[in-house]
């Protein structure tokens, strides 16, 4: 099979990018999309030209590294999978394929198709955790958790943090990403003590990073490799409303348990 690829090339964050057309010849239908790109790159490297920079790592759809918008859809034409799980037999011979990076202000381009997704890490650092020290945890069976509850929490927790939701959203919003983490922890008893602080801190961080707001169009759900449901966004909204109600109660200024200056 042969393909014509229109690939976004951009040397550095500050330089202007443009589409460059490449031909991929003799592509086996059993090749993965990334292997096809590997082939194009091997050709470029052999000519001492800079290969197309793109991200990948585990190549089995779990690390969340891959980040290509293929013909206008993050992760390409198949649902419920990431780019690394896409195979060339999915495309008709001779097809023209446009490949772009995730586009969002919060994800500046580093080079070609590689973007900087640290904004998602910073949102997590704002509150995507349960503050427990190592050691001293009670026995795992002391907390009984309803099976369905655990399964729903697992549905939310399966987010791979690839950022396709942001890439697909008209408003480049990270709501599905934040919703997945907030819901995962709000559904479990372990996450309850910090739920008020968590949802506020994570949404504040999301705003700070320059993501847009949710338009409830659900493109995020449609491209999510783990098919995370937008119902978790409703859960997130509810958690946020709840936090507003809880917060307007009596003020309390607890002393930081980690104050080092004591």
């Amino acid at each position: 099979m042969n393909f014509t690829l229109k690939i976004w090339r951009q040397k550095s964050p500050d330089e202007k990018g443009r589409f460059v057309t490449y031909e991929a010849h003799d592509v086996g239908s059993g090749m993965s999309f990334l292997e096809m790109l590997d082939g194009v790159n091997q050709g470029l490297i052999a000519k001492d030209e800079e290969p197309v920079a793109f991200e990948q790592d585990c190549r089995e759809g779990i690390c969340g590294s891959c980040s290509l918008v293929i013909n206008g859809i993050p992760h390409g034409p198949d649902r419920g999978m990431s780019t690394c799980q896409l195979y060339m037999r999915r495309f008709p011979d001779g097809a023209v394929i446009t490949i772009e990076p995730w586009r969002a202000r919060a994800f500046p381009i580093i080079k070609d198709l590689v973007v900087d997704r640290r904004a998602l890490d910073r949102v997590m650092q704002a509150g995507g955790y349960v503050s427990v020290n190592t050691g001293g945890a009670v026995d795992g069976n002391v907390l009984l958790i309803e099976k369905d509850q655990a399964e729903t929490a697992m549905d939310a927790a399966s987010c791979i943090g690839c950022g396709a939701c942001v890439a697909a959203c008209k408003n480049a919003s990270a709501m599905l990403f934040v919703a997945a983490k907030v819901s995962h922890l709000a559904l479990l008893p372990q996450g309850k003590p910090e739920r008020t602080r968590r949802v506020k801190a994570m949404l504040d961080a999301m705003d700070r990073e320059g993501f847009g707001s949710c338009g409830n169009q659900y493109e995020c759900e449609a491209v999510c490799p783990k098919r995370i449901s937008v119902r978790f966004i409703a859960t997130l909204n509810r958690e946020y409303l709840r936090a507003g109600v809880v917060e307007s109660g009596l003020p309390a200024e607890p002393e930081s348990p980690h104050a080092e200056s004591a």
Binding site: V69, R103, E221, A222
Partner: peptide, 15 residues
């Protein structure tokens, strides 16, 4: 502002 550069090709699935 959240998406300063638009996609060249855009396809909607669900919206």
């Amino acid at each position: 502002r959240a998406r300063p550069v638009a996609y060249a090709v855009r396809e909607y699935r669900q919206a």
